[in-house]
Design a protein around this nucleic acid. Structure first.
Lengths: 186, 186, 186, 186
DNA sequence: AATTAATCGAGACGGTACGTCGGGTCTTTAC
DNA sequence: GTAAAGACCCGACGTACCGTCTCGATTAATT
């Protein structure tokens, strides 16, 4: 038997850690978010953190995936332009404000240098998946082999705008949606 | 007189540090690139590093700006499509391989959590400037007030593709250039 | 309960540090005996040293007190002159050769400039106590109010001789003991 | 000629350094008295300090010898007891308060570990010389071969009392002088 | 007077120790 | 068998002083 006897894992501790990571990320940033501070914020011993996660990145990834799906989901209206506009607005909000979104951006950069993080991210294409979900709806006859290029064309401008710290007020989701449809030949 | 007396700053040491950050960034990544390792790689004392730069980010920024301009410059051919294609190819290469480009991406992410880094980056819009230079050439009648949105539309897809770790071989600069011109209405 | 949980302090580490200061003091002297070198010699991390002692002086004091009592103890023979002679010989040996004695001398000097060290030393009068123990035996009717002056008269010449670096071979403990008894009116 | 031309050494700088050392020794102690702080206090560049002295100890020794002789000199009264009492009072004052005296005590301790300092001190027996000068006067028929033991008997108790941080008010120079004469057999 | 040469202040240089902090591990007791 | 407490070793942090060095500027004695 794998688990005979013994004290069961504390779900309370697990969630406390995931929330602590979200909080600390927006409060002090990735570099200053130490395993020690996570443990203290969560009211958990450091050993407990290490028992379940090896690195900051792992905790962050688990916390990010936990929230990203529902934050990037948009209701289908039947109108392609409206759907795309809603998605781009949700995307900007996600990247700019949500702990899950910020965590995702941080992990993307860490992945550039740390192959373990890269592999972690490869296991779930958060942004690509959400974009393709919307694209399947508004462009049902899209060639699957180029779907990810279309996703990049859709996500890219907003992603760059937010990531490069430009003024979010000057980001016009509707215009970007129109431009996307126009370039897609529609 | 402003600076009488004293041993002059060693330009040799300055360049050694700037090259050391470039090297270390690609070799071990941002997090593992400690001030100590920078000093040792540069063959310079830690005190000398701290004398001229406060943080890793400052060194990285100076190193990045040093190289970015010439790496992102493309010759004018007279053909809009060719110019844009060449630019997007240089951009992908810059972001994916160049130490200066990787440094820039790292700094963008750090800026999300560290306002000092954000301010640093605000002093020079490396990617935006290079994109606008090309846009001025191929779309001379572009409204200046929306030039940065056009720049984001041009840069965004490639930026996202590279940043999210997608296969560079499947990135088609010519197609992206065409899509951009199409969405721009020629 | 006062101290439940937690790993107990390593007595091994404590003794290793106390022995390391003894060794280093005689090998390289007080100034060159850095906290770093103490930790390395003891095979202990610097953090562990700092966890239990704030300064070199504190370690040295603990190490000194640990050994001084037994090194300065002399057996009672019943003969005053023999007892005093034996004590002065032990005293010279202690001050000149014993790590504990050298540590004590160093601390006395440091106390001149550092009030924290002065307070430390005030908590235990190593030399005075040992001298009074012998004096109680050989001069039982000594006025307690002047016992410390008698102690200074007994200890002083030997202390000065050794401290000022004079030839130990020319130090005659018996003669000093006789002179002391003579001046004490006995 | 050995020294043709060139700017002569600044006597002003020399004295400024010697005074700075005295001041700093009593203000911050030996350990905290860095070469840098000496230079700054003296209003002199560090290079100038290093040009003329190799170590703190050398500066301290030169400063100490400069003052010690006159501070330990006592007028001859013709009365042995009065002469000795005056000397012991001057000695206590010197060791306890005078920068030169404190410097001397510090150097004695450093000498225990640093042979260069020991050699420096061997070049001039400040305390022994002063004691022998007085002894020559009050005990003219003293055997020269045991003069230094007598000096130790005279100086020792006061030296120990002050060095071990005992209350100076309870130090009775006259009583010590009487005890010395008693033990010397008149 | 012009030259020469050793001095001076200033301050950057490569080192090293400082005392602190976070890394991850381990040991103990409590649940 | 998990959890909390906390000591352990390790190594980077940013600072300060070490002693050396390269400057430009000053200051006499020698040409």
């Amino acid at each position: 038997m794998t688990s005979s006897g013994g004290r069961p894992r504390s779900e309370e501790a697990r969630l406390a850690v995931l929330h602590a990571v979200d909080d600390l990320l927006v409060e002090v940033g990735y570099a200053a978010m130490t395993m020690k501070s996570v443990a203290e914020r969560a009211g958990v011993s450091r050993a407990t953190v290490y028992r379940w996660w090896s690195t900051k990145a792992e905790i962050l990834f688990e916390a990010s995936v936990l929230d990203s799906e529902k934050e990037l989901a948009v209701a289908a209206t039947g109108d392609p332009l409206a759907d795309l506009t809603a998605y781009l607005e949700a995307l900007a909000e996600f990247l700019r404000c949500s702990p899950a979104g910020i965590a995702y951006r941080v992990l993307l950069t860490e992945a550039a240098a740390d192959s373990a993080v890269a592999e972690l991210l490869g296991s779930k294409d958060v942004l690509g998946d959400s974009a393709r979900t919307v694209l399947d709806r508004v462009l049902p006859d899209l060639d699957p082999s180029t779907a990810d290029r279309a996703a990049a064309a859709l996500v890219g401008p907003t992603f760059f705008w937010v990531t490069s710290g430009r003024d979010p007020a000057r980001l016009d989701a509707r215009e970007l949606a129109e431009a996307f449809l126009r370039s897609a030949g529609r």
